[in-house]
Structure formats: C-alpha cells, structure tokens
Design a protein around this nucleic acid. Sequence first.
DNA 1: AATTGTGCTGATTGCGCTATCAGATAGCTC
DNA 2: GAGCTATCTGATAGCGCAATCAGCACAATT
Lengths: 340, 340
Amino acid sequence: MSQGKKRKNSGRVTLADVAKLAGVGSMTVSRALRTPDLVSTGLREKIDAAVAQLGYLPNKAAGALASSQSDIVAVILPSLTEFATNEIVLALKSVLEPAGYQLIFTASNYDSQEEEKQVRALLQHSPAALILPGTAHTSQTLKYIENISLPVVELSALTLTPVHINVGVDHHASAYQLTKFLYMKGYRHIGFIGAYTNFGRFAMRLAGWQKAMIDHDMASHRLVLGLSEVSFSVGAELLMDTLARWPDLDAVICSHSELAAGLILEANKQGVKVPEQLAIATFEDPNLCNTLQPSLTTVDIPYADVGTQAAEALLQALIAGNRDKVVKSLGFRVKTRAST
Amino acid sequence: MSQGKKRKNSGRVTLADVAKLAGVGSMTVSRALRTPDLVSTGLREKIDAAVAQLGYLPNKAAGALASSQSDIVAVILPSLTEFATNEIVLALKSVLEPAGYQLIFTASNYDSQEEEKQVRALLQHSPAALILPGTAHTSQTLKYIENISLPVVELSALTLTPVHINVGVDHHASAYQLTKFLYMKGYRHIGFIGAYTNFGRFAMRLAGWQKAMIDHDMASHRLVLGLSEVSFSVGAELLMDTLARWPDLDAVICSHSELAAGLILEANKQGVKVPEQLAIATFEDPNLCNTLQPSLTTVDIPYADVGTQAAEALLQALIAGNRDKVVKSLGFRVKTRAST
DNA sequence: AATTGTGCTGATTGCGCTATCAGATAGCTC
DNA sequence: GAGCTATCTGATAGCGCAATCAGCACAATT
C-alpha cells in the first residue's frame, strides 16, 4: 500500500495522466491545449479525447509558477455598495473575461491603509495586472506598484501622477460645471454637502464647487457641510436644520445621490417645495435620481465607459507588453431634471 | 552576462533570497512566516528584518502547488446587478477575508451552461472552496463538484439534493405566505408576474403562489405573466394592459422589485390608486421599496444572513476538514407597507 | 554516564506545469 | 541524393515553495 513516496500527489488528474493515456509526451499535451496549431491533427484528437475521458482540468497554480504569468487580474474597488462599482465591475468583466482573464475583487473602503493591505495580498497571487482607484495611495503601496513590472490601472479619478494607465473623470471639472449650471439658472446661494469618507471625490468636487463660486462672485454665500456618513436618513435629518441656519439658501449640491434623495424625501414630507424653495443637484446615480419625485438633476458620469475603456487600454498593454502611460479623461454632462 | 541558465528566474524576490540575506535556510524562512512559534526569536527577528528590507512577497502560486491547498474561495453568483448580490458579497467577505481567504467572483447570469463554464474556469485555480447558487446545475457541473474533494456551498435557494452546505430561503414558502397575507387582507384576485430568466426563484415562487391560491379557493382567479426581462419600464408598460384584460384583478405579486416599482410609478402617472384599485407586493429590496410612494409591501429576505451563515458554515468545514451536509433554512417575513 | 526527549534547523525532494533545446520527420531545392 | 529548411515531438530542467525527514544541540531522566 505504502508507495515509499516522499510526497503524496494531490489525487487530481494531471497533464502526465493525459499524456500517458493519449500515448504522447506531456509537452505535447501542454501544447495541444494552449497552442493547438502547433500539434498535428492526429495527436490533437487523441489528446482531446483523453482530456474528455479523464475530465482533466489544468492546474493554473502550476502553470503560473512555470511560466511566471497568470490570468488573474486583481481589482481593488473603493466600495462594493456604490452605484459606480456595479457599472465598472460589469464593464471590466465584459471585456476581460472573454479575453481569458479571471478577476479578483476586493474593496478598500476608502481607506488607503486598507488598500495597502489589499495590494499586498493580491500581489501574492502574481496577477497579470492590477486595477485600483485613482485616489491617494500610501507610499508603501506606491513602492509595491512601482517596483512591480505589471500593468497598473488607476480608475475613476484622474491622478496628477499616473503610474501607468489612468482612466477617469475630472471630478473637479464636473462639480465646477454643475455649480455653473445652477448659476446660469439664476441660483446664487449654492451650498455644498458631502461626505469626506469618500476621500478623493469629496475633495475634488468640493474644490470644483469652490472655484466656481469664486469665479461667479458667489464667494460670500458659502455653506459647506462635511459629513462622516452617507445615507437617506442623514440627508433627511439635515434638511430643516440647514434651511433654518441658512435661510438664504436656494440650491444645494450633494456629493452623494443618497444624501440628495434623503433631502428630497424629507422636503416632500415637510412641504418644502423643490425646486421652488430649494433646488437640489447631485452626481452619478441616474436610476435612483430618476425614480424620485421630483426627479433629481445630476451630473451623469459614464462609469460603464470608465470600466470599458480601462479594460481595453489594459488589454492592449497586456498584449503589447508595454508600460506606456495612458491617460483618458472621460466626459460628463449635466442632466437637467425636475429638481432644479 | 549570459549565465548559462536554461531558465531565467522571474526577477522577483524569493524565499531563498530572504534566506541568504538572513543567513538561514529557506525552510526556516518559510516557517518563520507561516508558523513563527516554531522558530527561535533570534532567527525570527533576523528573518523579519530581511523580509522588510527586500520587500519580499510570497508567491502563492508556488505555495499552492507545493502544499496543494490555496486560499482562494471561488464564488459564482447568479447576477452582479441584484440587490441580493451586494448583501451576500459583503457578508461573505466580512467573514472569509479576515480568515485569510481571497474571494473570486463570477456571474452565471442565471444560465446553467454559463455556470458550468465558470465552474470549470474556477476549479483550475484549485480553490479551497466553491460557492454557487443553489439552483439547477448541469450534469457536468454536478460531476465536477461531486468528484472534487472541496467544500461546496449552495446559496440562496434551498435544494432538494444539497451537495454539501446549503443555506437559503424557502422561496416557495415565502410566496405562499405573501399570497396568504393578501388573502387575509381581503384580496381575492391575486395575479403573479415574474421573469423566468431568474430560473430557480421564479419557478419556486410561482409554485408557492399557486399552492396558496388553490388552498384558499382562489384557483379560478388566476393571472400569470412570465416575462423574459425585468426592468422598471417593463413593469410600467404592463400596467394598463393588464388592468384592461383582467378587470377583476385587485392585487399583484411581482417576482422582482423592479417590476413592482415600474407598476407603481406607472400607476401614479395614470392615476390608478394603489392600493385601493390595485395592491402590489413583491420580494427582497427594502431600499427601493421604501423609497417608492406608496411604499411597497415585500417579503424581506435576510440576504446578509444568508451570506454570513454560509460563510460561517464554510469556515467550519474548512477548519474541520469534514464534508458533513449542512442545510440551513433562513426565515423571512412579510413586511407590510403602503401598497397593500 | 547513558539514554531519551525536546526544540530548532536545514538539505532534499517533488508539487504540475512550461521554457528550452535537441531530435526526428517530412518536404523542398539544386 | 545530399543538403537544407520547416514542422512537429519529447526529454529535461527548472519555476518558488512546503512536506518530509535527518541532524544537532541541549535539557531532562534514570
């Protein structure tokens, strides 16, 4: 019974088993599976039959080790629960999975320390590429990704110092445009409410709003609320208090759709007329914003495009094997709805 | 320059590099990293220093090959865009990631052929466990997962023939209860609208509704619509036509929240009173259903619990190394809101 | 003093695969 | 038919790690 072996094999069917059954060398089986054109028809058929008969499944860990390349693409997202996430994930998958890549997702929860941990964990799987948010990284994270010779994609936010591929939207400009849009509509007392948990975007949008306020001589009418949490109810609780404190206020920009939704629901309940008494505008989630009554004016951000373009640029880099810097800034547009 | 080597090494820092720098054997480094208690303090400190200095990251592919076990947990979800998905993903992550597992997600899109492909692809990464929907599998898929000696979790739907761990909600019973609830409220002409894309759940809920209709002598008042697609607009388009064809209809159960939402929005637009003229009830998404006006009566399904309990049962199986069958049926309850 | 542990350490081997190179065979040129 | 290329095949040698086992020092036991 004891085979005198030092090591038990894992029990799985291996390349060698297939080779033996097909009566060929294992190298030929390996070729038949990866580059069938290099194997003669006769052998290929025998091998295919053997593979089917044994139900052979290649062991990718072994393949990755031997060839020092894998089909894993590691993706770090800021959060798993946001509208944008879903769009981006679907887009990435639709491009990268057909090309034979496996995606691994994790979330940093807008915490750069957590991101660093995730990067460390993911790099141990020697992925073919790394996709992560375009927001602030720790110096250790930067060290990891700069030392490593694999394509890196920074997503969603445009960076000043892109590592390699950077696809995103200029959040500063979008907030600027939204503010300007409200100004054109005649609003003069435009507040900004956001959550700084969302580190990158909050700051950029805030800055964009601020610049627009100054450029349009509204600098004296400033309300900024920085929250530590985002939800319908936080938005709802805010409304009456904010109106009481800033009676001049005629419009509000929310950094998150959920906040804006909370405001609207509460306004309906309290009899505050939107947009007559208060205009509300926000970013991103068209589904939610359309469902609400009145519907919400937003800056539509094409997150699906962010994902698609990022994936395509990545695929090119993967195929070409180059590390050329690619920066793509995607458009956005203010989508006027009933709330302004 | 040429080293006469047959094979270039990958350029990454390896265990051996750390060992050389620390002046110890590579096996000791391996131990220091995985089972520090078995290494003396002096060497451990030297090794830690060397690891830090070199920025060493273990190569998990090599580790997986050598030990024939990996830290990857492969998860197949029916869809990435559903409410339930998000809840489940978060719950799985919160239990399994702290335990040191890496999750890989893919989606089968309610297609068992696609599921089979995904299973094949995922098994090549020799995962530590496989999590997949508890709905119908192809015979090939069953062959894969039955032959394989790894923990399998079937999620969300209860199965008649669980492979190993099965955590879910009895969709049949939930539809039955919801129908009964409407009956108690006085409704007698209760229709059912669903999408059969969602193979498992649709059939089970339909059956539950049907049973309840028969049990409560409403068998003669039956409307069933089986759709091939789900969205707000499909729901909206349906409303007037359905009312015209089934003038008796006083209540509708929708298999998907989105359909119900579409119906409500259209009812508001057309002046159809909910619930006076038509009651509407559905399943699952409390966020959406609460936001709507009138708010939607639903069967609340504790998807977060599904995820948590599945992950915990899995963790136990992983630690104990057993393959005991575990079946957990989670509760649900009818959440009455304004729409009924 | 001889024996048996006990705790650490490292040499060796192999996990299952692919890169590399050396043959083998067939097809072609002159 | 010699010489050459083009095409195919397989033997071998790692990839980086962990399982295994042997060795060694030192403490504990008799």
